[in-house]
Write a protein that binds this DNA or RNA. Sequence first.
RNA 1: GGAGGAAUGGCAGAGUGGUCGAAUGCGGCAGUCUUGAAAACUGUUGAGGGUCACACCUCCGGGGGUUCGAAUCCCUCUUCCUCCGCCA
Length: 423
Amino acid sequence: MLQIQNIRENQESIITALKKRSIDAEPMISKVLELDEKRRSIQTELDATLAESNKLSKEIGMLFKTGKAQEANVLKEKTAGLKEASKKLGEDLNTTADELQQQLYLIPNVPHESVPAGNSEEDNEEIFKEGDIPTLSQGALPHWELAKKYDIIDFELGVKITGAGFPVYKGKGARLQRALIAYFLDKNAEAGYTEMQVPLMVNEDSGYGTGQLPDKEGQMYHVQADDLYLIPTAEVPVTNLHRGDLLAESDFPIKYTGYTPCFRREAGSYGAHVRGLNRLHQFDKVEIVRMEHPNNSYQALDEMVEHVKNILRELKLPYRILRLCGGDLGFTSALTFDFEVFSTAQDRWLEISSVSNFETFQANRLKLRYKDENGKSQLAHTLNGSSLALPRVLAGILENYQTDEGIKIPDVLVPYCGFDTID
RNA sequence: GGAGGAAUGGCAGAGUGGUCGAAUGCGGCAGUCUUGAAAACUGUUGAGGGUCACACCUCCGGGGGUUCGAAUCCCUCUUCCUCCGCCA
């Protein structure tokens, strides 16, 4: 959520920047400013009314104390009108403030200056590419065929017990999953991220805090009996750990990592792109989250990008990094780098990590602030990234490491797996 | 699930109708002393709205009510604690 004060002061530049998302924000912004003005004028009127009745109440108190009950009763009558007026104004204020809030929820984050304009993923900028694309033998298979051939992932079994998009990992497949999780967590811990185990269900406030609500209401599983949401990513519970906090500058940087399953309804997805592990309702992910001083957040973002690069280098997977264009940028993000692994057998790039700086957008909703050197409260910056999303890393490994003798396990994972080939 | 108790500033903890945005202690910050630090002493220190700046307004878990006036009384929700039951 953008700060209203920021909108008031930088109306023009915000509208210009939002054009990169291919949206015309002008109507939303003017509506917001109109409501803001209305809210403030009601507030001013209400304040004056309340000031008046506070004053009278004090006088009445004094009069009773000094035994002048009669005079007090005269004043009492005067307060009745004020009371009615302030009640009415209070209601107006609530309605207007609420409307303003709803309107603010609709405006996406302002893209960073480096974000290219664009409508879709076609306009994303490839900024880095590394790793050798292997030459596979004639009969190379996509991962869902490999999964069946070696009996390591069973999609049908998942359908039986839950439904499509809930695979069952078996034997070495399950072990490889666990190995990847442990390896990622270890790498993150090494880089100074504190490991957290967090709830997999969150309440409504948390959903609003990181911006999944109200924007992506339909994408989360909602447990209605208890009004809780299954997390679509660890970002939600981990970032919300500091909801409402007022930090000291010395608390920065705050660096967390966490492994969680992620649940996504993926309403509206279909076709070849959802085959196999490409798109699931439940998948595992290791996430990194940072809370930073605004002056350092872009340096932190670079560090996170470097960190993910290192992991992919160690796994020896061919990958590239994209700078997302305005049209592909998430609602809450100011700047996002996507990592994609090349899946040789499918001959396509698969997104495996998304590293973003949200600047103050989430912090504003979270009320996540710190005291600056002048003792003033300021909003912190929040960032997060996947390091990494399991299914597509797994897909990449299966497809790129397949040989006639079976699937080789990347060297760094062998100690975690306890075997070096799936055959 | 049943019965009681509680929720106050960064933390602990007073406050049961006006003089309370709130005692006191700890912590934080600044200063005195000191080569420096510690200790001691002195001062200072909640958040949000509003304003050029003041004024002013709001906030004592959330919401509602009583009253001229609510941290304080009433209703309701949430959370925590104690006891009982159940249980991995």
